[in-house]
Simulated scan of single mutants.
Amino acid sequence: MKRIFALLFAMVLFINLASAQQDPQATKILNAMSAKYKTMKAFKATFSQTMESSSAKSKETVEGNILVSGPKYRLAVSGQEVISDGKLMWTYLKDVNEVTITESDPEAEAMSPSKIFDMYKKGYKYAYTGPEKGADGVTYDVIEMAPQDRNNPIFKVRLYINQKDKSLKSWKMFRNNGNRYTYTIKNFQANPTLAADTFSFNKARYKGVSVVDLR
Rank of each mutant, 00 (worst) to 15 (best):
K2G: 11
I4N: 05
F5K: 08
F5P: 02
F9C: 00
A10P: 01
A10F: 00
V12W: 00
N16Q: 11
L17C: 04
A18L: 12
S19C: 02
A20E: 02
P24L: 06
P24H: 13
K28A: 15
I29K: 06
L30E: 14
N31F: 02
N31Y: 08
A32F: 02
A32P: 05
M33I: 03
S34M: 14
A35M: 00
A35F: 02
Y37S: 11
K38E: 15
T39K: 14
M40P: 05
K41W: 09
A42Q: 03
T46H: 13
F47I: 06
F47R: 06
M51A: 10
S54G: 09
S55G: 02
K57N: 08
K59T: 02
E60F: 05
E60A: 07
E60G: 02
V62H: 05
E63H: 03
G64C: 01
I66W: 04
V68L: 06
S69L: 07
S69H: 08
K72C: 04
Y73A: 12
Y73L: 03
S78Q: 09
G79V: 01
Q80V: 12
I83T: 15
S84G: 04
L88K: 15
L88Y: 11
W90F: 03
T91K: 12
K94D: 08
K94W: 05
V96I: 14
E103L: 01
D105L: 06
P106R: 10
E109N: 12
S112C: 07
K115N: 15
I116N: 03
F117C: 03
D118Q: 03
K121I: 00
K121N: 05
G123A: 14
Y124V: 14
K125R: 14
A127I: 02
E132F: 03
K133E: 14
A135C: 09
V138P: 04
T139H: 07
V142F: 00
I143A: 13
E144R: 00
M145A: 14
P147T: 04
R150Y: 13
N151G: 12
N152T: 10
P153F: 12
P153K: 01
P153H: 13
K156N: 15
V157E: 13
R158C: 08
L159N: 10
I161H: 10
N162C: 14
K166W: 08
K169S: 12
K169V: 09
F174R: 00
N176R: 15
N179P: 03
Y183N: 12
T184W: 06
K186I: 08
N187A: 15
N187I: 11
F188C: 07
N191V: 14
P192A: 12
T193K: 15
L194H: 07
A196S: 13
A196W: 06
A196L: 06
T198V: 07
T198F: 06
T198Y: 08
F201H: 02
N202W: 10
K203W: 06
Y206G: 07
K207G: 06
V212K: 05
D213K: 00
L214H: 09
